[in-house]
Design a protein around this nucleic acid. Structure first.
Length: 300
DNA sequence: CGGGCCCTGGAT
DNA sequence: ATCCAGGGCCCG
């Protein structure tokens, strides 16, 4: 469920509670949550290390541990939560998958739909020698994150190069925005929001947009997601909450996602829901009829 | 490349 | 009973 703004909100919460703390112990309750770990011993061997950094690229989080060759990678999937408690709770919430015991405090990984996971992953160099993501100064990233691109909020993102690669695919532009290999962090909500702001139809082949237009689209995605981070992400039910269990406020600023049948904020035409590639897309059939050059988020 | 699948639970 | 949900991977 969480996209970049929700994961970033969680990262900021984790950072304030975890950096400098020691990971005393891990308790694993769900085999699925660690299914990618080739050796459970690798994960358990992280116990005892100090947490130096809480890093993120796209929707992936990782903890950089003092002197450890592996990072603790966390992905929340569709429904994962990371909840920080001062003391271990006397009874664990339903779907608690993993508990991290710190020298001060406890982190619960709770995951109803079990698409999330934790993993102990070796750190590998970034090809461009720049920091691996938000929250780290080191030019490394977990090997399992290396296949995804930098995200729109990453100052090291090579925007012209990414837009150039997007321009070389005939796939629908929404699918390209969702493809984490180009630019990471965008999910179904923010893809729909980005396309609404840019007035681009989701099924338009990416190759029919110019490189400059695609750059504008990625910039727009960054603007929308930065604003969402500012207000703590999007919550429409209890599933997305920050590390303190609090909801975010971006739902009230959504212009397309989940607004089927409600008037477009620009032209009043009713927002439609289309099923594209098995997932729903929300769009204004008038504003997003054809191509218009991406406009700033302030254009409404 | 699109399509199906991995899950649980809430809404209709 | 059926559909839907914020992700990602693997398949053909």
């Amino acid at each position: 469920m969480p996209e970049l703004p929700e994961v970033e909100t969680i990262r900021l919460g984790l950072r304030s509670h975890l950096e400098g703390r020691r990971l005393e112990d891990l308790e694993v309750f769900s085999a699925r949550a660690v299914r990618r770990v080739s050796d459970l011993a690798d994960l358990l061997s992280l116990a005892g290390r100090r947490i130096d950094e809480v890093a993120r690229r796209g929707k992936f989080l990782w903890l950089v541990l003092d002197g450890a060759p592996r990072a603790l990678v966390l992905h929340l999937g569709m429904s994962g939560q990371l909840l920080v408690h001062a003391e271990p709770p006397s009874d664990l919430p339903r779907h608690t998958a993993v508990v991290l015991h710190l020298d001060r405090g406890t982190v619960l990984f709770v995951d109803q739909r079990t698409f999330g996971h934790l993993d102990a992953v070796p750190l590998v160099p970034t090809p461009d020698g720049r920091p691996g993501g938000a929250g780290t100064t080191r030019p490394v990233m977990p090997a399992t994150v290396a296949h995804i691109g930098r995200d729109p909020l990453d100052p090291s993102l090579d925007l012209p190069a990414v837009a150039g690669r997007m321009h070389r695919t005939t796939s629908a532009v929404k699918r390209v925005l969702l493809d984490q290999r180009y630019v990471s962090g965008i999910g179904n909500i923010y893809a729909d929001e980005t396309l609404w702001h840019a007035r681009v139809h989701p099924e338009r082949p990416a190759a029919t947009l110019s490189v400059g237009e695609l750059e504008g689209l990625v910039r727009t995605a960054g603007e929308v997601m930065a604003e969402a981070v500012r207000v703590g992400g999007t919550s429409f039910d209890a599933l997305y909450v920050d590390t303190m269990g609090q909801a975010g406020y971006f739902a009230r600023q959504l212009r397309a996602y989940g607004r089927t049948g409600q008037p477009c904020g620009r032209c009043g035409t009713l927002i439609e829901r289309h099923v594209i590639g098995g997932r729903s897309s929300h769009l204004c059939p008038r504003c997003q009829r054809s191509m218009r050059v991406p406009s700033p988020i302030t254009d409404n």
